[in-house]
């Protein structure tokens, strides 16, 4: 098992894992301060902590650093999939009223009528969310077109499409990553 704590300092690793969990949450439409996964009740920090603890206790065995991020993302996806079955709506029972004559009684346990959480995982809804996020900035919009519509994935070809150097494209990617978390906050009703 690789000793990542020699490569990256524990403090730095935790901060980066949590930041990545925030971005992963944002990619799946869970934005905002104190965002928790519906039906699971875990925050990005909880997911990142669990993966870090799994790693230092030897429960998660990995060969190199990228696998730790992969494990974190897979955990978020798995839980998102299972949260679909745990999300329910309350239905008002119209026939019955309480002592004050108010219809406050409800039935629980029906499947939610909102967009099923599992749909958040599909490619089309992923693309929609990224496009919505990129909408506020022409540079990010161009990037979204190159990657989501034209299906470009190599940095050199995307940079050429955008008419910038690969170094400039690298900087733009960093900015877009930060924008995703920052802009996501604006998409949440306060």
């Amino acid at each position: 098992m690789a000793n990542l704590l020699d490569e990256a300092e524990a403090r730095e690793l935790i901060q980066k894992l949590t930041a990545f969990a925030l971005r992963a949450f944002a990619m799946y439409g869970m934005f905002g301060r104190g965002a928790v996964m519906p039906g699971i009740g875990k925050s990005p920090e909880d997911f990142a902590s669990d993966v870090f603890i799994g790693y230092v206790t030897g429960k998660i065995r990995i060969k190199a650093l990228p696998y730790l991020y992969k494990a974190l993302l897979n955990d978020i996806r798995d839980k998102l999939g299972s949260s679909a079955q745990k999300t329910t709506d309350h239905y008002t029972v119209n026939a019955e009223t309480d002592e004050d004559g108010e219809r406050t009684k409800s039935l629980d346990g029906f499947s939610s009528e909102r967009m099923p959480v599992v749909d958040c995982l599909c490619e089309e809804s992923y693309k929609e969310r990224i496009r919505a996020c990129a909408a506020g900035d022409p540079h990010f919009q161009e990037m979204a077109i190159a990657v989501l519509d034209l299906e470009m994935t190599k940095p050199a070809e995307i940079a050429e499409f955008l008419g910038i150097t690969t170094e400039e494209f690298h900087v733009r990617k960093r900015k877009f990553g930060r924008w995703l978390v920052k802009h996501g906050l604006k998409m949440v009703p306060s």
Binding site: A19, F20, P66, Y69, M152, P155, I158, R174, G177
Partner: peptide, 17 residues
């Protein structure tokens, strides 16, 4: 392709996030 590989997140960006 859009945001870079997760393991390449810079610490300064992580802290800002």
């Amino acid at each position: 392709a859009l945001f870079g590989a997760p393991e390449n997140i810079e610490l300064v960006d992580a802290v800002e996030d």
